[in-house]
Amino acid sequence: MKTLSLRNLQKTYFDPYAGSQVTAVHDVSLDVEQGEFVSVVGPSGCGKTTILNMVAGFIPYSGGEILLDGAAVKGPGPDRGVVFQSFALFPWKTVLENVGFGPKMRGVPKADRDRIAREYLELAGLSHAADRYPNELSGGMQQRVGVVRALANNPAVLLMDEPFASVDAQTRMTLQEELTRIWQERKPTVIFITHDVAEAVFLANRVVVLSKGRVLDQIKVDLPRPRVWDHLMQDETFKRLSAQVLQMVRSA
């Protein structure tokens, strides 16, 4: 079942430095099935973050349409959870309050939203950090909070914008493995933006390669789950798919 549909999506904006209209997204059409994990990969400037911001409702689109469960998307809303590269946690709220923020906005009573938040913190292995403030946590832990904060709100689609780009390499691999585990448990619909080809293949059911504001190609990833780096690093299919995607990105 289709959840999210982008139809001939287009974005042009005025670039004050160039002094002219710039087209960031030319013509992108994309369907995402419910429970699907789609990675969107491409070189910087290919329009991937712009697309995500349009789907999130942070910026308006210039042409085409975005449909979520058949309805046109307009402005940000709790049906689309967002995980940011910069984490964007609320520094003045504890971890528990951060995760319970979405339910709070829905009017869930305090006892219930604390229970929901604790459940999601356990899912991310963060139960011990519930009463801490974000600045007391490492980058990796902060982004775990960022992920479950978005999930705790039960969004129809989870939008992730290079979420692991600002943590160290070891932590990144752990976070990637945890994300695939959480995805298997909860089956959220995910759009994952990245410029890291191996990451895109490792996580997704499908990789969409973007180039200059257009969809260049799409590749199905039928690797078995659970996915663990120790196995996949040696896996022939993984290596072949990664090489294939890398070639596309580099030719883009």
């Binding site: 409702g57 942070f58 709790p78 967002v82 964007a88 906005m105 904060r149 709100n153």
Partner: peptide
């Protein structure tokens, strides 16, 4: 206040008053 923090709140369902 970083725009991403405001965006985060909006995408979690925060409206004007919240």
């Amino acid at each position: 206040i970083p725009m991403t923090i405001r965006n985060a709140a909006a995408s979690l369902g925060a409206r004007r008053w919240a």
